[in-house]
């Protein structure tokens, strides 16, 4: 805490080497983490659900192709792919969100595919088809609402891991431009300040990341028990 001469607290969490208020930077940093976390999960989720459901519904070659792509991506440590893309294409929120989003689709595709395959033969799907609904309408209006629960659970855990990945990439200097405060970026800057004794610069951004990620993990656990008791303890 830094107080002025009259003893009124000016900076609750202190200031950094350039005199900027850590507390306000933390609050602004939440923007990037949450924005990137939610958007990337949304992009990855949408992509994965569409591909997974299409594969699961159509089967055959389309399905095999999509699953082969998923296998290839899983066989590749994702963060390395992200690093390479960002080094060549340059960093920035858009690229960050895109690459993190693309990194997530496999998880959703696999679950959406398995669920669609089990729902495809159900009578309500047959009924919708008998009423003359098109394939796309059956997929996204009839089947999707019925397989949403496990996907929402995964999405919650996924927001947590995307926020961790974003922080790691920002820490490596591959996130948003250095003028925009991010938690990972603040931690990267704090490294040079450790020996100067400015410990608070390293402690608070980390606590912010940890609490946010922890919240989404707990939310995920709770959602899983609440929405889909069958998945309990299945991690």
């Amino acid at each position: 805490m830094v107080a002025d001469r009259e003893g009124v607290v000016q900076h609750y969490l202190g200031t950094d080497a350039l005199g900027r208020d850590v507390y306000s930077r933390l609050i602004y940093g939440a923007r990037v983490s949450l924005l990137v976390g939610f958007t990337a999960v949304f992009i990855g989720g949408a992509l994965g659900v569409v591909l997974g459901m299409t594969g699961g519904y159509l089967g055959g070659r389309v399905d095999a192709l999509i699953m082969r792509l998923a296998d290839i991506q899983l066989a590749f440590p994702f963060i390395l792919l992200a690093i390479m893309f960002l080094v060549v294409l340059g960093s920035g929120v858009l690229n960050l969100v895109l690459i993190l989003g693309i990194g997530q689709w496999v998880t959703y595709a696999r679950i959406a595919r398995a669920q669609t395959m089990s729902q495809r033969e159900k009578e309500y799907v047959e009924a919708a088809l008998a009423l003359g609904a098109s394939g796309a309408s059956v997929l996204f209006k009839t089947i999707l609402p019925n397989i949403l629960a496990p996907l929402i659970v995964i999405a919650s855990f996924n927001v947590a891991s995307v926020i961790l990945a974003e922080a790691a990439l920002s820490f490596l200097g591959l996130g948003v431009p250095p003028t925009v405060p991010t938690w990972g970026g603040m931690l990267a800057e704090s490294r040079d300040q450790l020996l100067a004794g400015r410990w608070w610069l390293a402690v608070y951004p980390g606590v912010a990341i940890m609490l946010t990620v922890l919240s989404f993990n707990i939310l995920g656990d709770w959602l899983r028990d609440f929405l889909d008791p069958r998945l309990r303890g299945a991690d």
Partner: peptide
């Protein structure tokens, strides 16, 4: 275990340097 899965590794490293190392 829940905490362990929520702590960013590089931050844990910095904290260890700060408290255990320094």
């Amino acid at each position: 275990a829940m905490f362990g899965q929520s702590i960013p590794s590089f931050w844990l490293g910095i904290m260890l340097i700060l408290f255990v190392g320094l």
